[in-house]
Design a protein around this nucleic acid. Structure first.
Lengths: 213, 213
DNA sequence: CGCTAAACTTAGCAGTGTAAAGATTGGTCC
DNA sequence: GGACCAATCTTTACACTGCTAAGTTTAGCG
């Protein structure tokens, strides 16, 4: 009785379950969306009982939070990656583009990162740190772009504006509030939105692309 | 048997249950957040069985969607209200402000309106229409601000930019991604973010406020 | 007055997060 | 080498959720 050796060979003590749960969760995330990601389904996918996760995560929120932390780290890397080698007005465009493309490539993860489940409620210190560092990266880029100290008022305000814009644009597209045209590229779309600001503030084009639409 | 006259006087056929459920849901919404709003709890609050709602809404999603529709209508009204009587550069500021304040005053509703539950998944035609009209209102304002036809490319791009900025700013604040300082007003905060764009695009101030921070 | 259809209820299923308590086993110490 | 211990995983169970199916009540109309 209570023999359950269905699982191939070395059962019971599976080993490094936490990362396996995390990666399984990440895989399912983009399939089912951030709200319908269930611990039970993740556990089942890994091939482990539904309560096994509670020996590695305090609760569902902690797993979610760790997924978010991972997302923020990747976002920061994406920003760094796209920024390297760029200069002048290209820096703003590249940062916006990296941000936007990250969101478009990981829509459910992005929704999770900025959704109420994570943002409100208890965040893992690591998640909080990762989020702060991602924003710090953006500030660094904006600082270089404006050629001012990162902790100056101008850079802080400009970074907030840039973040708001990128986040808003990404959110609206990801949630299908504004539909992303089939024949559109991320580049042209971001350029188009940046161009929109030129119109709003009556300024000649700073975009490196000649004619966005 | 099966007498259940606990409910005061006219029981059973309660009458106009749908609006009562909606308003109860709206009340609970800001308490529990958009994800944890349950049909059962709403039904109980109204004093009706947990399945009664299914005779007025196809499912939970439809109730949520109608809440969102209501939100979009109120948002449009808030934009119109703040816009009336304003002119010139004040139009952009007022629109941004109205948008931001609406979100700050109805955080859970706003999260719901732009959350995956509503945006993805099936929306009520009315909700879709209400959302479109809210954006239309913004476009109208931007059109007047730029003094160009509403369906011109410039106005469309500028409206997208303005919406992205407002939505991003509101989302980030509402979700506590950036904390809203205690001694800060909506006005100064929005001005500060708009000022940020001035820095980003190297333009002298257009804000009607003298010194935002 | 009686019938019908709308409004509402009870019962119940499948799925969720999570707590409590038991089963298994890798590793360490004698 | 054997015994124990603590980490790891399982079973069981509870309270909650959305939702379906099948019943009961009653308003309104002929």
């Amino acid at each position: 009785m209570t023999r359950n050796t269905v699982r191939s060979r070395t059962s019971y003590h599976v080993g490094n379950l936490a990362p396996r749960l995390l990666s399984a969760a990440r895989e399912m995330l983009e399939q089912v969306g951030p709200n319908k990601l269930s611990l039970r389904a993740v556990s089942e996918k890994v091939g482990v009982s539904s309560t096994a996760a509670y020996h590695h995560f305090a609760n569902r929120a902690e797993l979610i939070s760790q997924l978010a932390a991972q997302g923020f780290r990747e976002l920061a890397l994406a920003l760094i990656d796209r920024d390297s080698g760029s200069a002048g007005t290209g820096k703003l465009r590249n940062a916006s583009l990296a941000y936007f493309s990250f969101a478009r490539n990981n829509p459910a993860l992005y929704q999770l990162m900025f959704g109420p489940e994570v943002s409100l409620g208890e965040m893992t210190p690591e998640a909080r740190k990762a989020r702060l560092e991602a924003f710090g990266e953006l500030q660094r880029i904006i600082g270089e772009y404006l050629q001012k100290p990162v902790d100056s008022r101008e850079v802080r305000q400009a970074s907030l504006a840039a973040w708001s814009h990128s986040h808003g644009l990404a959110s609206l597209v990801i949630h299908n509030v504004i539909q992303f045209p089939e024949d559109m590229t991320d580049e042209r779309f971001v350029d188009s939105s940046l161009q929109g600001f030129q119109y709003l503030f009556h300024v000649p084009s700073t975009s490196s692309e000649p004619k966005p639409e």
